[in-house]
Simulated assay, not measured.
Amino acid sequence: MKILVLCTGNSCRSQMAHGFLQSFDKNITVCSAGTEASGRLNPGAVKAMAEIGIDISGHTSDSVEKYLNEEWDFVITVCGGANESCPAFSGKVNKRLHIGFDDPSHAQGTEEFIWSEFVRVRDEIKEGFFQFYTQEVKPLL
């Protein structure tokens, strides 16, 4: 089973989703990528995941180009905001899905508020991807 999670920057939401999917099942192959990969992970995303025992600090922020020639069981986009455009994937895909989330890296305000946005989005990603895993992935394994 191969799953690719896509967003624009591949620094935050797709990285958290990648971490959750891998934590649900070590036997599935999970990658994440961005159409405009930032080349780095968002420190807030790394911290939010570490807080619940999932280490994504070793992940890399990769361009979607790296994965275009591979075959995927699922490609999932995670962009959420009305002003955001989700990337399209032109590679070989069995099933395309969209599970959208706000981008906590765009939060503005106090440090406490910004942190609360990372935690909120992290928890929403966990819930959304656990539902995806139990309904779409697990029955195929």
Rank of each mutant, 00 (worst) to 15 (best):
K2N: 13
L6Y: 10
G9F: 08
G9A: 15
N10Y: 12
N10W: 11
C12F: 06
R13S: 02
Q15C: 03
Q15W: 06
M16C: 03
A17C: 01
H18T: 01
H18L: 02
S23R: 09
F24W: 05
F24G: 13
D25M: 01
N27A: 01
I28G: 11
C31L: 05
G34W: 12
G34P: 01
T35I: 13
E36I: 00
S38F: 14
S38Q: 11
R40I: 08
L41T: 05
L41V: 04
G44H: 05
E51R: 07
I52V: 14
I52L: 06
H59I: 04
S63M: 14
V64N: 05
V64A: 10
E65G: 08
K66Q: 13
L68N: 04
E71K: 15
E71W: 08
W72Y: 13
T77C: 11
G81T: 05
N83M: 10
N83Y: 09
S85V: 13
P87T: 00
A88W: 12
F89C: 02
K92V: 04
N94P: 02
K95T: 10
H98T: 10
I99M: 07
F101R: 03
D103F: 06
D103P: 15
H106D: 14
Q108F: 13
Q108P: 04
G109Q: 01
T110W: 00
E112C: 01
E112M: 01
I114Y: 05
E117L: 03
F118W: 01
F118P: 03
R122K: 11
D123W: 00
E124D: 13
E124N: 12
I125A: 13
K126E: 15
E127N: 09
F129H: 10
F130P: 00
F130S: 15
F130H: 14
Q131R: 14
E136A: 11
V137Y: 09
K138S: 05
P139K: 07
L141P: 02
L141E: 04
L141H: 05
